[in-house]
Simulated assay, not measured.
Amino acid sequence: MESFLKRFFPGVLRKMIQKGTSNEYCMYDSQSLTAFTSSLYIAGLLASLLAGKVTKAIGRQAVMLLGGAMFFAGAAINAGAVNIAMLIIGRMLLGFGVGFTNQE
């Protein structure tokens, strides 16, 4: 976890070391960490709201395949991320994948 913070959220890691705490997610004064954390949930919410209309238009099987493809793309982008923007885009794709595949 420390290497992840060192690479993408060095400010959070510095504050964590200064305060002597091990719970880095309780420090919500980092806008980039908040965006990283909430992007998955916001994208999932939006996708689940859109999924019904998309399902009516293209069918359930196509929506499930689309959701799976978006989830896979998000995981691949997150695995190869080199900056925070890539992490957030990957998390948003993961959220869209979860939102679309949640459609019943």
Rank of each mutant, 00 (worst) to 15 (best):
L49S: 09
G90A: 03
A73E: 03
L94K: 00
C26M: 09
Q103R: 04
A69C: 09
N23L: 09
F36M: 03
M70T: 15
L50R: 01
L50V: 06
L40C: 07
A79T: 09
I42R: 02
Q61Y: 00
Y41R: 02
E24Y: 13
F9D: 12
L45H: 02
R91F: 03
S3D: 15
L5D: 12
Q31D: 05
V54M: 15
R60C: 04
L13Q: 14
A47E: 12
G67N: 05
I42V: 14
T101E: 11
K19A: 15
M27Q: 11
R91E: 11
T101K: 01
L33R: 06
L46T: 11
F72N: 06
N83V: 07
L65K: 03
Q103M: 10
S32M: 06
V82K: 11
L46F: 12
L94P: 03
E24C: 10
A73V: 11
M1A: 12
I84G: 00
M1S: 12
A35C: 06
A69D: 05
G95L: 01
I77K: 01
L49R: 01
A51K: 08
G20H: 01
R14E: 15
G90H: 02
T34F: 10
K19S: 14
I77G: 03
G20W: 02
N83T: 06
A73L: 14
A79E: 10
P10M: 06
N23E: 15
L50M: 13
G95F: 00
V82I: 07
F36L: 07
E104M: 12
T101V: 11
L93E: 07
G95E: 08
A79D: 09
G80D: 05
I88S: 07
L13W: 10
N78L: 04
A47F: 04
L66R: 04
K19E: 15
S39P: 05
I17R: 15
A75V: 12
T55K: 03
Q18L: 08
A47R: 09
L50H: 03
A69G: 10
K15Q: 14
Y25R: 07
Y41K: 00
L40W: 08
R7E: 15
K53I: 07
L93A: 09
V82Q: 15
V98D: 04
G80P: 01
T34D: 04
F8S: 08
G20K: 02
C26N: 13
E24R: 00
V54D: 06
Y41L: 07
M86S: 13
N102G: 14
L93G: 12
A57R: 14
F100H: 02
G99F: 00
L5Q: 07
K15G: 11
L33K: 08
L33C: 05
Y41P: 00
A51C: 10
V54T: 11
L5K: 05
G80M: 03
R60Y: 14
A51L: 08
N83Q: 04
G68T: 07
G97I: 09
L66F: 12
A76V: 05
L13K: 13
R7T: 15
L93P: 06
L94Y: 00
N102T: 13
A75N: 14
M70D: 13
K19T: 13
S3E: 15
L33Y: 04
S22H: 05
A62D: 09
Q103F: 03
L33F: 12
K19M: 10
T37A: 14
L13V: 11
V63L: 13
L5Y: 13
E2A: 08
N78I: 01
M86C: 12
